[in-house]
Amino acid sequence: MSKYKKTIIGSTILLLILLASCLYPLYGPTNFNHMNFIEDNHGNVIGKPPFPPSVSHLFGTSRNGEDMFWLLLYGAKFTLITSFTVALLRVLFGGVFGLFLSLWAPFLKSLFKDFFLAFRYIPSLLIAVILMAPIVGNFNDVPIASLVTCQIIILVFLGIPTATLMTVDITDELLKTSFVQSSFLMGASKFHIARRQLLPFICSYSVLFMVQQLLSTLQIIMHLGIFGYFLGGLNRAGIFGWDDPQGPPTPATLSFEWAGLIGQGFKDFNLAPWTVFTPVLGFFLVIVIVNMIKKEIENNILGLETTKWGKKRKQASSVKQFGVPLNTFELINKE
């Protein structure tokens, strides 16, 4: 288990954050330490939100007067659970499609690539923006659960072509190996091969895929926040003091998930940078942890399995050991 030390520590931290966020209603203030105006003794207003970071508000407050730290803690669960679900579903669907494509329908491979040509040449952020626009682009009163479901479906869809093609690549590599070939020669059915020979490999690879997809999902959720497509939709109440009297209210996030916090704060960046930096740093922390996990899994899987990298590394290290240690030669005829 010592091989996965970092993974265990990292996932424990993530789980703790998630747990703390889920249990928030039990201990946290329901109004996020709301603080509207500061008045002096004579009742004159001497300050209004957003307040910069101070002792009472370690990360400052948002423009609505809520403490950023509590907001961040409260919103963590939505961000984490959504990205995790999306990553899991992407790998699941991608894996199943990929296995099907390369085992039973190899002729469909090129058609599949052509069908999803857009995903090869256009950054997924652009596609995400186009696809999200009809659903969360405007204010609506759809129940939050169904809205989030739609968003998750779209986010999953964005990753499926890549995940499928990656699975196809790996499965094709595996099908060329000698143990699969000899299994075919002995008359094994395709299903049998998939179950007995490919599944162990696919299982270990899918963990790695999932971590990679988790990273890309986190990135894309964060970017969508900038464009104002918050998870869970927009809050009509808007942001205090930022309303355009004639136009629609400036959208605020309904669920307080992190991307939404970035999105609602970023127009305010010049005046109150802490409202943006706090959620971005939150993302940074999570991404660093996930990346650490990814690195370790990558090292363990790709280093141990007989892939190209592993072979190369072994060869490279064995080159240096060619030399014979000193004093190991002994003359036979010592006279």
Binding site: L218, M222, I262, V280, F283, F284, V288, N291
Partner: peptide, 10 residues
Amino acid sequence: EAVPDLLVIF
């Protein structure tokens, strides 16, 4: 590698 691009931009 792990730094999100938004952090850099901000």
